[in-house]
Simulated scan of single mutants.
Amino acid sequence: MLDLLEELLLLAVDEEKGTIPLGVSGRIDFCLSGALLIELELRNRIKVDKKTLKIIDRSSTGHSRCDTLLDLIDRSKRVRSPGYWITTTKKAFKHLRRKYLEGLVDQGILREEERQILWVFPSTAYPLRDTLLKRELRDRIRLVILREEIPNPRTTRLIALVHACGLTNTLFDKDERKMARKKVKALAKEDQLVQAIMKTIQASNSGAYAGSL
């Protein structure tokens, strides 16, 4: 079973080009950091509201990065905001995107290709080797949004992250997008961590520091 970060990256990567669209690429690292925190929340290790993120269970999750992050939060001298921990996670887990992409390569889901941009600059692409998982992910989201199937908590959080990353249009046909955007946005609005991710992205784009609280 893929975790939220793997699912989000799989949805973001272009199947043939093996790259992440420019508009999404500027958001994805904040979303991946937030997704790691959401993993802790789904595993009932933290509790989040608009202003605070608190540990409620210090026991191991069995997920190495989640446990490392849980320990980092536990060592904080005071309770911090969700925005603070999104920013801190992004700094603490360097190259998170690349490491997760390489992990998907190791699982045989993506393949790694070395390329050159303008025949000069080296670049790595990650086209899909196995398209089945991505198709299943898209179908799972589309069933919730278009057919109002009741989602489990993990799918709900994934849909909210799709909104935060700006991926909605890539998952729906042109005639579906207006309605899909409305429903995806509504789900994201109820998610405190995703709202914090979006505020952190906005603050980063404006040059402000979102993790000051």
Rank of each mutant, 00 (worst) to 15 (best):
L4G: 02
E6M: 13
E7R: 14
L8W: 03
L9W: 04
L9V: 12
L10T: 12
L10Q: 14
V13G: 05
E15F: 00
E15W: 10
E16S: 13
G18Y: 09
G18T: 12
L22Y: 07
G23Y: 04
V24C: 03
G26D: 06
R27F: 07
I28L: 06
D29Q: 09
S33L: 09
A35P: 04
L36C: 00
L37V: 06
E39Q: 02
E39A: 03
E41G: 07
E41C: 02
L42I: 10
V48P: 00
V48A: 01
K50D: 15
K54E: 13
K54P: 01
I55D: 02
I55T: 01
I55V: 15
R58K: 08
S60V: 02
S60W: 00
G62V: 01
S64R: 01
S64N: 07
S64C: 02
R65I: 12
C66I: 01
C66W: 02
C66L: 07
D67Q: 00
T68M: 13
L69T: 08
D71P: 02
L72N: 03
L72H: 02
I73T: 07
R75M: 04
S76A: 14
K77P: 02
K77Q: 13
V79D: 10
R80D: 02
S81M: 11
Y84L: 11
W85Y: 15
I86S: 03
K90W: 01
K91T: 06
F93Y: 05
F93K: 00
R97H: 08
R98H: 11
Y100L: 04
L101R: 03
V105M: 08
G108E: 14
R111P: 00
E113A: 05
W119Y: 06
F121E: 15
T124E: 03
A125L: 07
K134R: 15
R135E: 15
R147C: 02
L158T: 04
A160P: 07
A160N: 03
L161M: 06
L161T: 04
V162L: 06
V162M: 12
A164D: 07
G166C: 11
T168A: 07
L171R: 11
F172H: 11
F172A: 14
D173R: 15
D175F: 12
D175W: 05
D175S: 12
K178I: 14
K178S: 12
K183I: 14
K183C: 11
K185W: 14
A186C: 10
K189I: 13
K189T: 12
K189M: 14
K189S: 11
E190N: 03
I197W: 00
I197K: 07
K199E: 15
K199H: 06
K199W: 10
I201T: 03
A203T: 03
S206D: 09
G207H: 10
G207T: 06
Y209W: 07
A210M: 05
G211E: 09
G211F: 01
G211D: 04
G211T: 05
G211Q: 10
S212G: 08
L213N: 13
